[in-house]
Computed example of a mutant assay.
Amino acid sequence: MHDFDGLAKKFKKLSDEGVSQILKNIAEAVGETLLNLVIDEIDKQDLIDTGLMWNSFTRGEDNNIWEWDVDRNSISIEVGSNLTYARYLNDGYTIHKAHFVPGYWATNGTFVYDPRAKTGFMAKPRSFIGRQYFDIAVKELDMKRLEKELGRMLS
């Protein structure tokens, strides 16, 4: 160890500022990083053409989940989307009964869901494979990112 005094100063700073605040900052940075990775994966897979689901993975936006739990000796953060179809798109789903889906076909050939539309199509029974976009983003959030955030907070 070449700079013991410098290390001691960093530990004093940690105790002065409060380790719990530093850990909360790290958890926030990791949560933001995960949400950004989810949005990137949604874009990579070209899963949506409207901003509703994309925005639901943006902190502070409608339908976004950002919940803290500070309990005993841990700090945890839950991030994600409250949109039901976000889970269906990630995990896959099966349509068991035919039903009407309101909306219209745009000029580029994509279907635009519109709950007020009188037009639409009949969704027939079938299964859809999950795209696992959230799971892929979690895998990308590896220890290197956590170490980077920890290093940034401690410097």
Rank of each mutant, 00 (worst) to 15 (best):
Glu17Phe: 06
Val38Asp: 00
Ala86His: 00
Thr84Gly: 08
Gly51Gln: 02
Arg116Ser: 14
Arg72Lys: 15
Ala117Met: 10
Leu34Phe: 12
Asn25His: 08
Gly51Asn: 06
Ala8Thr: 11
Phe100Met: 10
Met122Asp: 00
Gly120Ser: 04
Ala8Gly: 03
Val138Arg: 14
Ala117Ile: 12
Ile136Asn: 10
Ser81Val: 04
Lys144Ala: 08
Lys144Cys: 00
Pro125Ile: 14
Asp40Phe: 09
Arg152Trp: 00
Ile136Gln: 10
Asp135Glu: 12
Ile26Ser: 00
Lys13Tyr: 10
Leu34Arg: 01
His2Ser: 13
Trp66Phe: 15
Asp49Ser: 06
Leu14Asn: 08
Asn64Gly: 12
His2Met: 10
Arg126Met: 07
Asp46Arg: 14
Leu37Ser: 04
Tyr85Gly: 07
Asp43Gly: 04
Phe121Ile: 13
Thr119Tyr: 04
Trp66Tyr: 15
Asp69Met: 08
Lys144Leu: 02
Thr50Cys: 00
Leu83Ser: 06
Asn73Cys: 00
Trp54Leu: 09
Asp114Gln: 01
Leu7His: 10
Pro125Cys: 13
Asp46Lys: 15
Asn36His: 11
Asn36Phe: 07
Glu41Phe: 07
Met1Arg: 11
Asn73Leu: 07
Lys144Gly: 05
Leu150Phe: 12
Leu83Pro: 05
Phe128His: 11
Arg87Gly: 11
Phe4Ile: 15
Tyr104Arg: 13
Arg87Trp: 07
Leu83Cys: 04
Arg152Cys: 01
Thr119Met: 07
Gln21Thr: 07
Asn90Ile: 07
Ile75Pro: 02
Leu37Thr: 03
Ser15Cys: 02
Glu140His: 11
Asp91Ser: 15
Ile26Pro: 02
Asp16Ser: 13
Asp114Asn: 15
Glu32Phe: 09
Phe4Tyr: 14
Lys44His: 12
Val38Glu: 01
Ile75Gly: 00
Met1Thr: 13
Ile48Trp: 02
Thr119Asp: 14
Pro125Asp: 13
Phe100Tyr: 13
Asn63Arg: 11
Asn73Gln: 10
Lys97Pro: 03
Gly60Met: 09
Val19Pro: 02
Asn90Ala: 09
Lys9Ser: 10
Val38Pro: 01
Lys24Ser: 10
Glu41Cys: 06
Leu150Arg: 04
Gln132Thr: 03
Glu41Gly: 03
Phe11Ile: 15
Asn73Lys: 10
Pro115Phe: 05
Leu47Val: 01
Ser15Gly: 01
Asn25Val: 02
Glu17Tyr: 08
Lys13Gln: 14
Trp54Ser: 04
Gly109Pro: 02
Asn63Ile: 00
Leu52Arg: 12
Phe121Arg: 15
Pro115Thr: 01
Gly80Gln: 05
Arg87Phe: 09
Asn73Trp: 01
Thr33Trp: 01
Asn108Tyr: 07
Ile65Cys: 05
Tyr85Ser: 08
Arg59Ala: 11
Lys148Leu: 07
Arg131Met: 05
Ala27Tyr: 04
Glu149Asp: 06
Glu149Met: 09
Pro102Lys: 07
Leu154Ala: 07
Phe121Asn: 05
Tyr88Asp: 08
Val112Asp: 05
Phe4His: 10
Gly80Val: 05
Val70Arg: 03
Thr58Phe: 00
Arg145His: 12
Leu154Glu: 06
Tyr88Lys: 12
Phe111Ser: 07
Pro115Arg: 10
Leu47Ala: 01
Asn108Phe: 09
Val138Phe: 12
Ser15Val: 08
Asp69Arg: 13
Ile129Pro: 06
Glu28Met: 14
Asp43Ser: 06
Gly6His: 06
Asp43Glu: 12
Val79Gln: 08
Thr107Pro: 04
Asn82Gln: 13
Pro115Lys: 11
Lys13Gly: 12
Ala137Cys: 09
